[in-house]
Design a protein around this nucleic acid. Structure first.
Lengths: 199, 199
DNA sequence: ATATCTTTCTGCACTCTGTGCAAAATCCAG
DNA sequence: CTGGATTTTGCACAGAGTGCAGAAAGATAT
């Protein structure tokens, strides 16, 4: 196994990621076109050129393929919070990480729009998305306590701060959506953080 | 039809409510006993003494029977916020309504514990619960904007305030859970509201 | 009490989701 | 190229969820 600037993840893992992404985007596209309920796993698999059985090797349920519930992202965010400079306050660290996260989301805007649209149309999906959001929030809360080094059963503040930060994200995002996705989401988020008293 | 202390809803509707509740509690009990995945709709229906087909006349999915996703509660909360005295600030109104809401939850503690336990064990259910929570939060946000009378696309504050209030509820609840459900949840919530700067 | 109308319950047939298992195909290392 | 590891696939199957039409039961009027 040559490391360095070599093949990196290796062909096998690269293919796996490709397939996962292809299934996700295919599912998303078909569902947007004709509605979540009117799309079958069989179709998705066929368009993505894998067997139906393989679909379930990547996603446990049809909805998972649409939400792309990535357990790794929550973990990555957790790590990112811990990686912030030690002199930053919890609020500052959370703010920095979430701002970065939102910037990343703004990058592939189209994908995000499709997801939002679907969630608005399907209660089933909205629930999934909410579940994913909650796991994300939990990761953030854990990270806040890890930075503070205090006991969650006694110290309210870190958890509260993390949740308020998420409240700011949601508020900023809703405003952004209602305003037709114009302007910078990151700017709106900064305003929301300030208004929430996070610093 | 004599009103007053009369038959009220009528036999038919009474039976319907009974059946619904029986299915809900049966599902909950079986799921707690042997795990969500190991219970089939067929069993639930059999124990509740209805046909499997009838189960689906009451709940669209097996999970719905467990979460008993009550759309009315969000609406009731919305109304409650609007019913608060006009001189209260948005934050005060939200605080009062949420405190009352939490007090009501503390009342039937056992039911709540079963639900929490199930949600902790089943990601599927956790997602449902999160979805219900989000609908609740949305109702609160709507109510805040209705009180403020401003445009959600322009005015960030009411939505942010409502979400921060929910953040306080979640933080207080988590602490309460981690502390073994001892003491008053309402008191913890008051502390959380203060710490979040809501007044 | 009887006849009639309305709503609910139920059985049946069917599609789709999701899982376990073993064989085939594919990738990787030496 | 060869042997070992992983991934893909087909197959069989149980359970979820739906549409439909007839049976059962509550409601209503005479």
């Amino acid at each position: 196994m040559t490391t360095g600037a070599g093949p990196g993840p290796g062909l096998r893992d690269r293919k796996k990621e490709e397939t996962r992404l292809r299934l996700h985007t295919t599912a998303l596209r078909l569902a947007v076109e004709r509605g979540v309920g009117a799309v079958t796993v069989e179709e998705i698999a066929a368009v993505a050129e894998v067997s139906p059985r393989t679909f379930f090797n990547y996603f446990a349920t049809k909805e998972d393929a649409l939400v792309n519930t990535d357990a790794g992202r929550a973990a990555a965010t957790h790590a990112a919070v811990l990686a912030r400079p030690a002199e930053e306050s919890p609020a500052e660290a959370l703010r920095a990480v979430l701002t970065e996260h939102v910037r990343a989301l703004e990058a592939d805007r189209d994908l995000w729009r499709m997801r939002s649209e679907l969630a608005a149309r399907s209660p089933e999906l909205a629930a999934r998305a909410a579940g994913a959001g909650e796991r994300f929030e939990s990761a953030l809360v854990d990270a806040a306590y890890a930075r503070a080094g205090t006991d969650p059963a006694r110290d309210l503040l870190p958890g509260l701060t993390a949740r308020v930060a998420m409240a700011a994200v949601r508020a900023a995002y809703q405003q952004h959506r209602l305003a037709g996705q114009e302007g910078s989401l990151a700017d709106r988020l900064a305003t929301a953080f300030d208004a929430a008293g996070l610093r």
